[in-house]
Design a protein around this nucleic acid. Structure first.
Lengths: 227, 227
DNA sequence: ATAGCCCTGTCGTCTGCACGACATTATATA
DNA sequence: TATATAATGTCGTGCAGACGACAGGGCTAT
C-alpha cells in the first residue's frame, strides 16, 4: 500500500545534529566541551524546570515521559546514543512539561539554547536542520496518534516492533534482531496498552513463530510478513 | 491543578505569521500578492501531492485530515481565518500525507517554500517564529495524544469544548459562546469518539444545564465549572 | 411544495482490553 | 548461596464505548 511503502522512508530519517554541533561547539567555545554524567534513575529535568537546554545523548538510555494527575507515569519515548531531547526549548517551551530520566549510567552533552541560537544565527543550515528535526518529531507523533486511536492493541504492538526494528534493529537475512532491555511494562507504556496484554500478544507471536524474544533481545523472523 | 492553570497559556499562543509574511511578500515580490479562491469541498491538496507550499487562510474554513486504509476519514483539525497549514513542507515533508479541504467558500494565500526559505534567510526572526509555530503544533499534538489515550470519551469532549471555547469562543460574563457549524460527526472525529457518544454526552451536559447548543452555536454556561 | 439527504436522538448488543489476583521465574542484592 | 525484588505468564471479571438499526427533524434543491 502506498502509505507504508512510499512514505516509509521519511519516518526513519533522522537529523544527526551531533556531528554538526559538537565540532562547532568545540571550535567556537574552545575546549569547554561539557559532559554530564548521570546515574541510573537520575532526572535530567523534571516538569516545571526551566527549559534552558537541549541535550545530546553521548551514552546511555534516557526515558522521556510525564505524569498524569493521578501520578501514573506515561513514557513517550526511550532514547539512546546520538539522539537528542529537550528540543522543545528551542521552539519556545519555557518550562518543562515532561521529564527526562536516565535508565542507566548515562553521559549527556548539554547545550544552552542561548549557545544554540547563536550557532543558528551563523549557520543557516543548522537552522533548517533543527526545523527538520522538530518537523520529524511532529510527523512521528502524528503517526503514533493515529496508531493509538484507530488500531487495536495487537496492531499497535506489532507496529511498534516494526518501527523499533527499522530504527534500532540489525538485519541479518530475513531476520531482524533488536537488542533491547525494554520490559513488557515499557512496551505497554510506549504502545498505550496494559502490561498483561503485551505479554499475551508477544507470546502469541512467539507461538506462531513470527518472533522470538528473551530478556535481552527481540528477534523478528520476517519483518515484511509480521502481521 | 498546576498542569492546567500554569500551563494553560502556552496552549493558546499562536504565532501570527500572517502579519509578518504578507507585508514582506508584498514588499519583496512587488504586487504579486496571490490569492486562490476555493469552492466548498474543493481540495487544496491531497495525499501524494508535492508539498511545495504553505498556506495562509484569508477567509473560510479548512479541514485538515487524512484517510485510513479502509477509506475512513480522520479529521485532525479545522482551521479558520488567520491560521496556517501545510507548514510541514518547511520541515522537510516532500509529499503530502494529509489533505486540506475547503469546508465552504474560502480564500487562501499560498507561499512556495522557496519563497519562504528566501525570506527566512534574510529574516532571522521569521525563522524563529516558524520554529516556534511548529513547536507549538508539536505541543498541541502531545496534549491531544494524552487526552485521546488516557481520558474517557466524556472528558475528551469536554476538553474539546473548553479548548475550542478558549480558542474561538466569545466570552460574555460567565458564558462563552462558540459560533460553529461543527456537526456531531465532526466533533466525534476530532475527539476520537463515535457520533452517537458525542450526541449523548452533549445532551447530558445540556440536561445538567452546563451547556446549551443548537445547529449554529454552542454556549458554555461557566467554563471553569464545566466538568 | 416535495423529494431526498444529512443531522440528531435513542435503543440494544457485542467486544476489546484494562485491571486485579495470583503463580512462576529471572535478576539484583545482601 | 540465600533472599528480596522485579519481570513474566495466565486466569476471570467488568465495563466503556463502538456500532448497527431505526425514527424523527431540518436543510437544500428543483
Amino acid at each position: 500500500m502506498a502509505t507504508s511503502s512510499a512514505a516509509a522512508l521519511w519516518y526513519f530519517e533522522s537529523v544527526n545534529l551531533y556531528h554538526i554541533l559538537c565540532p562547532h561547539k568545540v571550535k567556537k567555545m574552545g575546549d569547554k566541551h561539557e559532559f554530564i554524567r548521570y546515574k541510573k534513575d537520575d532526572f535530567i529535568y523534571v516538569p516545571e524546570d526551566a527549559a534552558s537546554n537541549i541535550y545530546l545523548i553521548v551514552d546511555g538510555r534516557i526515558k522521556i515521559g510525564h505524569y498524569l494527575e493521578d501520578g501514573k507515569e506515561v513514557v513517550s519515548s526511550i532514547l539512546t546514543t546520538g539522539e537528542i531531547f529537550g528540543e522543545l526549548a528551542l521552539a519556545g517551551e519555557d518550562t518543562r512539561r515532561d521529564f527526562a530520566q536516565a535508565m542507566c549510567e548515562a553521559v549527556i552533552c548539554p547545550l544552552t539554547i542561548g549557545e544554540l541560537q547563536e550557532l543558528m544565527f551563523e549557520n543557516k543550515d543548522l537552522s533548517f536542520k533543527i526545523l527538520k528535526l522538530i518537523g520529524l518529531r511532529l510527523m512521528k507523533l502524528e503517526r503514533k496518534l493515529e496508531l493509538l486511536v484507530f488500531k487495536d492493541a495487537r496492531t499497535r504492538v506489532i507496529e511498534f516492533l516494526k518501527d523499533t526494528a527499522a530504527w534500532k534493529g540489525q538485519r541479518v537475512g530475513f531476520e531482524t534482531m533488536i537488542p533491547t532491555k525494554l520490559t513488557h511494562k515499557d512496551i505497554a507504556s510506549l504502545t498505550g496498552t496494559s502490561r498483561q496484554t503485551v505479554t499475551t500478544i508477544l507470546n502469541e507471536l512467539k507461538e506462531k513463530n513470527l518472533i522470538n524474544f528473551d530478556r535481552k533481545k527481540i528477534l523478528i523472523r520476517d519483518i515484511d510478513n509480521l502481521k
